[in-house]
Design a protein around this nucleic acid. Sequence first.
DNA 1: CATAATGTTTAAGA
DNA 2: GTCTTAAACATTAT
Length: 260
Amino acid sequence: MPELPDVEVFKKEAEKALDKEIETFHGKESKLLSHTEKEINGFLRGKSFHKAYRRGKYLFLITNSPKAVAMHFGMTGVLTYSAKEKDPPPYTLCSFYLKNQHGLHYISRRKLGKVELTRDYQEYIRQNEIGTDALEISKKDFLKKLNESKSMVKRFLTDQSALSGIGNIYADEILFQVKLHPKEKTYELTDNQKEELYEQVRKVLKTAVEKQADVKKFPRHFLLPVRKEGEKCPRCERSIEKISVSGRTGYYCKHCQKPG
DNA sequence: CATAATGTTTAAGA
DNA sequence: GTCTTAAACATTAT
């Protein structure tokens, strides 16, 4: 789930918890957490989150800027805000309880994410090499990075240090919209294709954010609702095929997305 | 029971 | 140093 549009949804959820005093943090010791529950409480108790900031797939809950809680959602992470009287959702790994009797819950079935304290989130961004957000990057910078790349387009799109926020699923969608084969080399692209790639990165991500990352609400010409082997291509109705690119399984239409 | 899954990191080979 | 693959991580869903 958690690529840029999903994390944008979590950001909206986190914003419900802004400027409310933090009462306590609950979270069992795990690889997810950078500190112990006690330490996190020492850091947060009595304070409030004043801003939620998303960069790529990361979300920062900023307390006293630049101090923040940094979150990454791995493959299955979710963030929800709900009344304290309700039980935390299944697979909740840690929770921030507020004085207003609500809690912000970090949920994950597989524990591949991160919840970390940082004294400076800008520094955290540098250390973790989180590139410019895919919706923030200018055309000029995008083309510059693209021209520096020597890999396959899909690899380029999902490289978080080049531009951040695009994962396996949205890369497939963007490539489908641009009609590019996922294994096409970046240096083989024409200038027109490069520009079109930039435009579709924005268009696909903006659409997904508008639809709250809910695949059921996506336009009919999108690949994602039928992103499965043997489904019909929304454009030519031929069969969607599976392909392995840069270590991940991709889905594409062999007819519409021809290699160059 | 075996396999794949929205992510990242690390090791190894070209 | 660059690029690519494979495996590891932890766990569930099919």
